[in-house]
C-alpha cells in the first residue's frame, strides 16, 4: 500500500514542481565556482602573476653571492 492509497477519496496529490534538467548542470557549475574559489583562497595561490627562477649555486658561492651583478643583469632580469 502506498501513501497515496491512504488518502481519502477525491484527495489527489498535488504534483510538486520537478527540477529542471538544467539544475544538475548548474549544480556542477556552482560547485566548480565555489569550490574553485575555496581552493584558491585556502591555498592562497595566485593566478600567474609572478616569475620564478633560481640563482645557481655557483653564483651564490661566488663573490657577491645573490647580489651578483652578472646574475641579475645577464642571466636573469626579473620582472616583466
Amino acid at each position: 500500500m502506498t501513501a497515496d492509497d491512504k488518502r481519502p477519496p477525491d484527495h489527489p496529490v498535488v504534483p510538486r514542481p520537478k527540477r529542471s534538467l538544467l539544475a544538475p548542470f548548474m549544480l556542477v557549475f556552482c560547485v566548480l565556482v565555489v569550490g574553485g574559489y575555496g581552493a584558491l583562497a585556502y591555498t592562497q595561490r595566485e593566478l600567474g602573476t609572478e616569475d620564478r627562477d633560481q640563482i645557481p649555486s655557483s653564483v651564490r658561492s661566488s663573490p657577491g653571492g645573490y647580489r651578483s651583478y652578472s646574475f641579475w643583469h645577464t642571466g636573469y632580469h626579473g620582472g616583466k
Binding site: P17, L27, V31, G38
Partner: peptide, 26 residues
C-alpha cells in the same frame, strides 16, 4: 505550465550563500 528553470534558482542561491560564507570566513 512548469517553469523550465525550476530548481536552478535554489541551486544558485545556495551556492551564492556558500560563496559569501566562504568569503567571510577567509
Amino acid at each position: 505550465q512548469p517553469d523550465p528553470t525550476q530548481g536552478v534558482a535554489s541551486v544558485l542561491t545556495l551556492s551564492l550563500l556558500a560563496l559569501i560564507a566562504l568569503g567571510i570566513v577567509f
